[in-house]
Design a protein around this nucleic acid. Structure first.
Length: 571
DNA sequence: CTTTCGGACGCCCTCTGCTGGTTTCTT
DNA sequence: AAAGAAACCAGCAGAGGGCGTCCGAAAG
């Protein structure tokens, strides 16, 4: 590793050494909860064998862990392989791991506890000292647990660092799927390691108790020099983590090949090799049209079909055609046979695809796994969350082709276009009255407001009639519309409006509430006062004069002029 | 080794329905 | 002119259909 990198990492380690020592709590918990109960009676060698239950486990040279970095020579380099396994706590995330400390137990086992950000601490027990600590720096990224298995870890131990070479060798060492290429690289790295007399530490992780976020790392040294002719086996399988007993493999027993990158296991070597290819980026099949590469010839052929438009699987009932037979079968279920093999146990829903049933079941369970990162909204599927995110981004991807108004959802735009720019707009007739409403949802509001039975009595404003439906009340009140329902108590006068009756009643009472501020003269109506004020007190007021076109005589009111002309034909 | 098949995931679409602000009509 | 009611309208979310693609297991 370059000197500059060393200096940077040394600085980092300087900070690490300033941290408080971890308490022994982790050790005690471990003893109490019995996580290591099964292992306690075993020798370190057995423990290591348990860890190396991969295909090539027998070749691993075991060595009891030495976790005293201070005793290491300054030139010594380490490779730590972090072995992960499925955890009982689903909430476990790697960022938690990056906060862990590692406490060493007998036999090279270590317990992991919360420590400081980005650091892994190795403790050795009661006799703690800074010299006895290891710190592992994790690159500044988030990793899945699977990724952790191939993660390069820098072991910071005063001046001791993991080298780039160590990283490569470590990656190889942890890989149980040994392709030829990997094997070749491995040998090269082993030779390299031998030259530099590297010491390999193997760090295996195991799950803690149920519900616990703890993981347990098991560390052993791998002496490269002593296994140079043997492939490095790495504790790889997941079953080991689940049940130690099941992992033990004896001669003659059927072997299980376990992928250390994912949870895949197989009893057949060929299947295992085929699976391991999925973890490589090798895509030897090239599309000569777009230069895209594919892992298998079948995938390439299907892809080329998308270029050529070749869809060999044609539906006999419609014009649709598909690249694969599976697509055709599914299409026929959707469109023609309507076969729906996936049935909901809680309702009558059935679907063509399992994923649709899974999505549907969430409407029963209320599960909303897709949480918006900007608000409290969570959706039941990815599409709804994506659609919801437009409310935050303001994105309006749908544009009306006529008026160019933009919309967040296609359906909103569709109804806009239909009702704003189409002539043949479908209308919705209210089943209870003659009202026609453009939108079905608004018709529903109309029915809710006007045609829903009301327990409370709805009384007519003008008579004693009572109704239980708003629409009936309104219709009834309209019957009062043209009748002169305001009748004078003192004479036969009747009118349509209350304000007219108010003014009329004053003719009986003599009330004149409108007083001129200039001459104190009183009037029954506001309008009369207004006319009076203009005529007698407003100097700027110019009265209108209506002249007769025949004799040129002037009148102050149009009506007077009109009456004067009445006997004649007025044009 | 290739093909077939089914499962799974993702993307996009439509239909539906509710809500609240705005506009129009009525009184 | 003002107030209230009803219709209009856009925004938004729920539910589900349909298809493209990838993958692994099994069969040929």
């Amino acid at each position: 590793m370059a000197a500059t990198e060393i200096s940077v990492l040394s600085e980092q380690f300087t900070k690490i050494k300033e941290l408080e020592l971890m308490p022994e709590k982790g050790l005690k918990e471990e003893e109490e909860d019995g996580v290591y109960r099964e292992k306690d009676h075993r020798s370190p060698g057995e423990l290591e064998a348990e860890c190396t239950a991969g295909a090539l486990q027998d070749s691993v040279l075991e060595e009891e862990l030495e976790l005293v970095p201070a005793s290491s020579e300054e030139s010594e380099k380490h490779i730590l392989t972090l072995q992960t396994a499925p955890f009982t706590s689903e909430a476990f995330e790697l960022q938690d791991l990056s906060l862990l400390s590692i406490q060493q137990q007998e036999g090279g086992q270590v317990m992991v506890q919360q420590a400081g950000p980005g650091l892994l601490w190795l403790e050795e027990g009661p006799q703690q000292s800074l010299q006895q600590y290891l710190a592992i720096s994790i690159q500044e990224e988030l990793y899945s647990l699977q990724e952790m298995e191939v993660l390069q870890l820098h072991l910071l131990e005063d001046n001791v660092l993991a080298s780039e070479e160590s990283k490569l060798a470590g990656s190889l060492a942890e890989s149980a799927g040994l392709t030829k290429l990997q094997e070749r690289q491995e040998k090269e790295q082993l030779l390299l390691a031998e030259r530099t007399k590297e010491q390999f530490l193997h760090l295996g992780a195991m799950p803690g108790d149920k519900g616990s976020d703890e993981i347990f790392l098991k560390i052993s040294n791998l002496n490269v020099e002593e296994q140079e002719d043997q492939p490095i086996a790495v504790p790889a399988n997941v079953e080991k983590a689940k049940s130690a007993k099941n992992q033990r493999q004896t001669k003659g027993a059927k072997r299980t090949f376990c992928c250390d990158v994912c949870v895949f296991t197989s009893s057949r070597m060929s299947s295992f090799h085929r699976h391991m290819k999925t973890h490589t980026s090798e895509k030897p099949h090239l599309c000569h049209l777009c230069l895209k590469t594919f892992r298998t010839a079948t995938l390439l052929r299907n892809h080329v079909n998308t270029h050529t438009g070749t869809r060999p699987y044609k539906c006999s009932d419609c014009n649709m055609a598909f690249v694969t037979s599976g697509e055709l079968v599914r299409h026929r279920r959707y469109k023609h046979t309507h076969e729906k093999p996936f049935k909901c146990s809680m309702c009558k829903y059935a679907s063509v695809e399992a994923s649709k049933l899974k999505r549907h079941v969430r409407s029963h369970t209320g599960e909303r796994p897709f949480q918006c990162c900007q608000c409290s909204y969570a959706s039941r599927d990815t599409y709804k969350l994506k659609r919801h995110m437009r409310t935050h981004s303001g994105e309006k991807p749908y544009e009306c082709h006529v008026c160019h108004a933009r919309f967040t959802q296609s359906g909103t735009m569709k109804i806009h276009t239909q009702q704003k720019h189409n002539e043949n707009v479908p209308k919705h007739q209210c089943p209870h009255c003659a009202t026609i409403i453009a939108r079905k949802s608004d018709l529903r509001v109309h029915i809710r407001n006007l045609h829903t039975y009301s327990a409370a009595e709805l009384k007519c404003r003008y008579c004693s009639a009572v109704f239980h439906e708003r629409y009936a009340l309104i219709q009834h009140q309209k019957t009062h519309k043209n009748e002169k329902r305001f009748k004078c108590e003192h004479c036969s006068y009747a009118c349509k409006q209350a304000r007219h009756m108010t003014a009329h009643v004053r003719t009986h009472t003599g009330e004149k509430p409108f007083t001129c501020l200039s001459c104190n003269k009183c009037f029954r109506q506001k309008q009369l006062l207004k006319v009076h004020f203009r005529k007698y007190h407003d100097a700027s007021f110019i009265p209108a004069v209506y002249k007769c076109p025949k004799c040129d005589k002037g009148f102050s009111r149009w009506v007077s002029l009109f009456n004067g002309l009445k006997p004649q034909t007025f044009v």
